[in-house]
């Protein structure tokens, strides 16, 4: 137990620091300096994004992710946005297990023919209002796989898409930006 506690203390807080914090929403103030300097070239970007998220959202957003046939590359970056650096869950954005709990459907991959029905059903199970974000080049337009006997191409060939996020795979910062754009245009 002592080793675990000492590791926690020594590592400190990794999340890219926010300059403007909302004290009511975040009990944590100030972050400890890290022992090893992180290689966060995009720290400023992430920080700005997080500030923007707080401003736009300021409350919970529930995301249901569906892999409609991706190569698993985008999934790796979706997992990354929940690591301590990007800390999306800390911003009130949560990935949920059921479409019935979701506000936003995050879809990766070209839609494989074998996943078409499951994707439609997931969308139908979500309550209104709902947003759809197509993630990655494949989600946006079919990517390298395009349309063929086994692939329907981009997500918009099956569902109404509110926002696309290009990249193969898109970086965590690009994913957060895309989610932010989707919710801010919905708010307008």
């Amino acid at each position: 137990m002592l080793t675990i506690l000492s590791r926690m203390i020594r590592t400190g807080i990794l999340t890219e620091p926010r300059t403007e914090q909302n004290p009511a929403l975040s009990p944590e103030s100030g972050s400890r300096p890290r022992t090893a300097a992180p290689l966060n070239e995009d720290a400023a970007t992430v920080e700005a994004l997080q500030r923007e998220l707080w401003k736009t959202l300021g409350r919970a957003l529930c995301i249901r992710h569906v892999d409609a046939g991706s190569c698993n590359g985008c999934e790796l970056e979706i997992n990354a946005i929940n690591n301590p650096y990007y800390n999306l869950e800390g911003m009130g954005i949560k990935f949920v297990a059921s479409p019935r709990h979701a506000d936003l459907l995050l879809v990766t991959g070209p839609v494989s023919v074998n996943m078409e029905e499951a994707l439609r059903r997931t969308y139908d199970a979500m309550p209104n209002p709902k947003l759809v974000v197509a993630l990655g080049d494949c989600g946006a337009c079919g990517g390298i796989f395009g349309k063929n006997y086994a692939s329907r191409g981009g997500i918009s060939s099956i569902l109404p898409v509110d926002q696309t996020i290009a990249g193969c795979p898109p970086s965590p910062a690009a994913i957060i930006t895309g989610i932010l754009q989707a919710i801010s245009s919905a708010a307008r």
């Binding site: 892999d67 991959g109 796989f145 692939s151």
Partner: peptide, 29 residues
């Protein structure tokens, strides 16, 4: 089989010098 995207057929439409890009996307990890 849910993510079957027809990659083997797709390879046949690519050139030898560009198909490494598809190979890299068979399993992103």
């Amino acid at each position: 089989g849910y993510t079957h995207k027809g990659t083997a057929k797709l390879f046949e439409s690519l050139t030898q010098t560009e198909a490494h890009r598809l190979a890299a996307r068979l399993s992103g990890d």
